[in-house]
């Protein structure tokens, strides 16, 4: 009932762990899997090891979370052991990578490929890392070149993760034409929190990425619009805070849905409960498979 075929990758359900929300320790990925997640996206890997920004790196705001972790990760040397471990446990593994140029993306994709990852997610959307993420993803031509070169060199699924922009649908369409097997929409949105007593931004990086309930309606709109123009599957990300938000994404046209910062408030149990609640919803409304839900809001 809940299984999906995501661009040829078989998943037991459509819930995917979003990149970076539990750090990069495999034991955390394993815990998400034990709680029922359908697939894991790893924390984003870069070529060099990154310490991340100094603290404070995360704060709640009224309607979500603001983070500037700074893409902390062990670098390319850390990829192989993580991917191989997850694959050994039978976990569908999507490896998030972020390069500064085509060559860096190719190097990272090559390690993912050799380690038998199911797919790479291209982080073209992190809003707060200099020279990485969104700074690359807003350049449509560069995005296209990165996807093309990875698809040319490796027989591996490629999911670009795109951030909010005025032409996100066009970039997604170009990604499809370039050979992307699916697109992930969206990442956090640049934001800031100033504490009025201290009279300064609270994150050390000043700017952060906004996640959580605040961005959910924005993400739904992006997914809905992209669905009208794309033939490849859409993986939704942004502000899932209860099971209804997941159903909303599916109805907007997503084939799979990532969950992220909700885990801090509701814990890993959220995964199991969401699956249970969606099953009940489908039974009570007469939906026999996920496929019947995908994009129904367009009919």
């Amino acid at each position: 009932m809940l299984q999906i075929d995501l661009a040829g990758i078989k998943l037991r359900n459509f819930l995917i762990l979003a990149s970076g929300v539990v750090g990069s320790d495999v034991s955390m990925y394993l815990r998400a899997w034990e709680n029922g997640i359908g697939a894991i996206v790893t924390k984003t890997f870069t070529i060099e090891r990154r310490e991340g920004f100094t603290t404070p790196i995360i704060t709640a705001v009224r309607c979500g979370y603001l983070n500037a972790v700074g893409l902390e990760n062990p670098g390319k040397e850390g990829m192989k052991p993580v991917i191989e471990y997850l694959k050994k446990c039978g976990i569908p593994t999507i490896v998030s990578i972020a390069g500064r140029d085509v060559d860096e993306f190719l190097q990272l994709a090559s390690i993912a490929y050799e380690s038998n990852a199911d797919a790479v997610e291209l982080n073209l959307s992190c809003p707060h890392a200099k020279g990485l993420g969104l700074e690359i993803g807003l350049d449509r031509e560069l995005t296209v070149r990165i996807i093309k070169r990875i698809k040319d060199d490796f027989d591996m699924k490629v999911f670009p993760k795109l951030g909010l922009s005025s032409n996100v649908t066009e970039i997604a369409k170009s990604a499809e034409v370039a050979g992307a097997d699916g697109v992930v929409l969206i990442n956090t949105i640049r934001g800031m929190k100033i504490d009025i007593w201290l009279a300064k931004p609270v994150l050390s990086n000043k700017f952060g990425g906004l996640s959580g309930p605040a961005i959910h309606p924005i993400a739904v709109a992006v997914v809905y619009q992209a669905y009208e123009h794309l033939n490849i599957p859409i993986i939704a990300s942004g502000g899932v805070w209860d099971w209804e938000d997941v159903v909303e994404f599916l109805m907007a046209g997503a084939k799979a849905v990532q969950i992220g910062s909700v885990l801090t408030d509701k814990g890993f149990e959220f995964i199991r409960e969401t699956i249970e609640n969606i099953k009940n919803f489908m039974n009570s409304r007469g939906y026999k498979s996920v496929e019947e839900l995908i994009g129904v809001a367009h009919e």
């Binding site: 404070p56 704060t59 709640a60 009224r62 929190k193 009025i196 007593w197 609270v202 408030d265």
Partner: peptide, 16 residues
């Protein structure tokens, strides 16, 4: 899900 935790947990906000 809206009955519980509709918005985020504000104890996680940095305040002066």
């Amino acid at each position: 899900g809206a009955h519980q935790g509709y918005l985020v947990d504000r104890s996680k906000e940095i305040v002066g």
